[in-house]
Simulated scan of single mutants.
Amino acid sequence: MKIEKINWISEIAQEAEVFLTDGEYKCMAFCQPCNYDVGMSISTALHSFMTKNIMLSYSENCLLKQIDSERFPHKCTAIVKNVSSSLVSVGKFVIELDSIIPAGVNDGDIIDFECARIDLW
């Protein structure tokens, strides 16, 4: 993942909206403290905050979309990488969910979920 753009919410508090891309998918993440620069590569997992509505997907295509372009909530369709660690992926984005993936979902399955925010730590 690479940082395309940073919009500072508060430079004093080191809070920023960080716009990431893997070349195919894009994501806006909240970051605090933000010690990153535009153009930097990120190899760590992102983190979903207030994850809800986790369910098996009917789609075969991944999705990483802001629900409202001016806000943080996202709707995602992702491949489960590790059920026990609640790790999923969308393209090269790896996201750690803050909720347990429901029983009956296995590694390699595709799930849908929503979250209030995606964080970059």
Rank of each mutant, 00 (worst) to 15 (best):
R117H: 01
L64C: 15
I9C: 05
G104M: 12
Q32W: 05
A16Y: 03
F93W: 13
Y36W: 06
C31T: 14
M50S: 13
G108V: 04
N106G: 00
C62L: 03
S85F: 15
K81Q: 15
I101N: 06
S86I: 09
L56G: 06
A45Q: 07
S84N: 10
I54N: 07
T21Y: 00
V105C: 07
Q66S: 04
C115T: 14
D68V: 11
I67P: 10
I110E: 00
I111K: 04
A13I: 03
D98L: 06
E60Y: 06
I111D: 04
V80Y: 03
V90E: 02
C27V: 00
A103W: 08
F72W: 05
A29T: 10
K2S: 00
M55R: 14
L56V: 02
F19H: 15
D107V: 05
G39M: 13
S85T: 15
G104W: 12
L97E: 10
V105Y: 09
A16G: 02
S86K: 09
G23P: 07
P33N: 04
E15F: 08
C62P: 01
K26C: 00
D37G: 07
E15G: 05
C34N: 15
W121Q: 10
S10G: 08
A29E: 03
V94Q: 06
N35H: 11
I9L: 13
F30T: 09
T44D: 14
I111Q: 05
K26R: 04
G91T: 07
I3E: 04
F49N: 14
E60K: 11
I3M: 06
E60A: 08
C62D: 03
M1R: 03
D68Y: 07
A78D: 05
M40D: 15
E114Y: 04
I67S: 10
T77K: 09
W121M: 15
A29V: 12
E60P: 00
E15A: 15
I95D: 09
C76E: 07
M40F: 06
S89H: 12
K52M: 08
P33R: 03
F19P: 00
L46Y: 15
D107S: 08
I118S: 03
S48E: 07
E17K: 14
G104L: 11
R71S: 12
L87M: 07
I111W: 03
L20I: 02
E4D: 00
V94M: 06
T21M: 00
L63D: 02
Y58T: 10
K92F: 02
D37E: 14
S89P: 05
S89V: 02
D37H: 07
E15L: 11
M50A: 13
T77R: 12
Y58K: 12
D68A: 12
I79D: 11
V88Y: 03
S86F: 13
I54M: 08
D98K: 12
D22M: 00
S59C: 02
S85A: 15
M1V: 04
N53V: 02
